[in-house]
């Protein structure tokens, strides 16, 4: 954590932060989520026969909390609260977002929803492996294919041994 990050909480118009300076949508999103929880909470019994508190109370509290926090966040953003991207070991918070890399990695994460069941874990993992490696700038796809395939197959057999239910190896062929 940089110490100068803390001094700029007010009027944070410090050097072009890569994040959009006024992320109102986060606050609004939180309020929307809070509203859903609040609505669900009111639909549940608030009190139970012997217990004073029913299953609805905590849901209501969570919803109300999110709603209030979302509103506070919107207010803070309006007042100019600054948001600085975190630094990670291999990432620089101050650089601009690489949209292509982000979307490639996102596809790798979304892919399993569709392919894990019908095409099996090793196939899906190999494909995701290649996509993430590509997102990080690897251009030797055949090498990634081999690495991914070896890792996915090894992991499949190893975790199978440990008793994990990973499904069939390659369902289209029935193995």
């Amino acid at each position: 954590m940089s110490t100068d990050g803390n001094n700029t909480t007010e009027g944070g118009s410090q050097a072009a932060a890569p994040a959009s300076p006024r992320p109102y949508w986060i606050g609004v999103g939180l309020m929307a989520m809070g509203a859903v929880w609040l609505y669900a909470g009111f639909g549940l019994p608030q009190g139970a026969r012997y217990a004073a508190v029913g299953p609805g109370l905590f849901v209501t509290l969570a919803g109300a909390g999110l709603l209030v926090l979302g509103a506070i966040l919107v207010l803070q953003i309006w007042r100019g609260e600054s948001f600085e991207a975190q630094d990670a070991e291999d990432a620089d918070g101050a650089t601009k977002m690489d949209k292509r890399a982000f979307l490639t990695a996102l596809v790798a994460v979304a892919l399993p929803i569709g392919t894990m069941g019908p095409l099996g874990m090793p196939f899906t993992a190999t494909l995701s492996f290649m996509l993430v490696a590509n997102a990080f700038g690897s251009r030797r796809w055949w090498l990634d294919l081999i690495c991914g395939l070896v890792l996915a197959c090894a992991a499949w057999f190893l975790f199978k041994q440990l008793g994990l239910q990973l499904g069939r190896f390659f369902p289209p062929l029935g193995v």
Binding site: M116, M121, T124, S128, F129, V132, A133, F136, G167
Partner: peptide
């Protein structure tokens, strides 16, 4: 590239 790709493979195995 291969390190982060490998982490995702283990993540999806853990979840699946």
């Amino acid at each position: 590239p291969q390190l982060y790709a490998g982490i995702l493979v283990f993540a999806m195995i853990g979840v699946w």
